[in-house]
Simulated assay, not measured.
Amino acid sequence: MDLKLLAALNAARKARKAAALVTDLDTGAARIVLEEALAGDALEAPIRAALRSGRSGVVADTRTFLTVQVPPARMVIIGAVHISQALVPLARMLGYDPVVVDPRTAFATPERFPDVTVHAEWPDVALPPLGIDRYTAFIALTHDPKIDDPALIHAFERDCFYIGALGSRKTHAKRVERLGALGVSAEQLDRIKAPIGLAIGAITPAEIAVSIMAEVTQAWRQGIA
């Protein structure tokens, strides 16, 4: 591979930017397209589809090969609750590196979350250093506006691919009212998945965790690009 192309791919990987190496199989000519610069590209549709699936391959009916590079998805969980305890192993199984944030030190303990990065701090302190970005699934589970609301605002600012929050429709309506009063746009508020998780009739913490993981997967595979 051309060293300039390799350097560009490495730079994209370091910056957590999705990219595709587009190679003409007949001539060997290659170019790199970043996801952020896809609009208007002749291969925009197949490249977006490839980035969404994370799979490299030949573009249908062409002699063009796409080598895709997508940043590994991350998950930030606000709230060291029972649902979080069930969600963490599911997230890891699917390749996420989960982080738990909860200022309530009685909940955010190594005993309850062994081998998990836990920040027993308020969101305004814990979240900025995490480098949250568009490839992050953001899940608010504390049911406490003092914790969840500022965390959700941070998720909006970082354009997370998935933003979900625990609570009934009534609870969410109040959340929308509070966040709207703080200047959050209607478009951003519409991005919140609430009640969180796919509607599978989940009742137990483990079942709710499954419904959340399913909804996150759906957003990752169908909506990230």
Score class of each variant (00 low, 15 high):
19 A>P: 01
71 P>S: 01
35 E>F: 13
57 G>F: 11
221 R>M: 06
26 D>F: 10
28 G>W: 09
52 R>N: 15
8 A>S: 14
222 Q>K: 08
58 V>M: 15
202 A>E: 04
11 A>S: 14
62 T>N: 09
38 L>N: 10
213 M>C: 01
45 A>M: 09
135 Y>N: 11
80 A>K: 01
78 I>M: 03
172 H>G: 00
22 V>N: 01
76 V>H: 00
220 W>Y: 09
194 A>M: 06
169 R>W: 09
91 A>D: 08
119 H>C: 00
67 T>F: 05
114 P>H: 05
158 R>V: 04
117 T>W: 03
96 Y>I: 01
101 V>C: 11
112 R>N: 12
109 T>K: 02
161 F>Q: 01
167 G>W: 06
214 A>V: 03
9 L>M: 15
26 D>G: 08
159 D>W: 03
59 V>E: 13
66 L>D: 10
217 T>E: 02
64 T>K: 11
160 C>Q: 03
97 D>E: 15
169 R>G: 01
119 H>M: 04
141 L>V: 02
82 H>Y: 03
116 V>T: 15
149 D>T: 11
118 V>M: 05
103 P>T: 07
70 V>Y: 06
122 W>Q: 00
111 E>L: 08
106 A>Q: 14
13 R>C: 07
130 L>P: 12
153 I>R: 06
225 A>L: 10
25 L>G: 02
124 D>Q: 15
172 H>D: 00
52 R>V: 12
153 I>T: 09
133 D>R: 10
88 V>Y: 10
180 G>I: 00
47 I>C: 10
205 P>Y: 07
141 L>R: 05
210 V>H: 01
81 V>M: 07
118 V>K: 03
20 A>C: 14
56 S>Q: 04
221 R>N: 04
163 I>W: 12
114 P>R: 00
30 A>P: 05
182 L>F: 05
49 A>H: 08
115 D>C: 03
12 A>D: 07
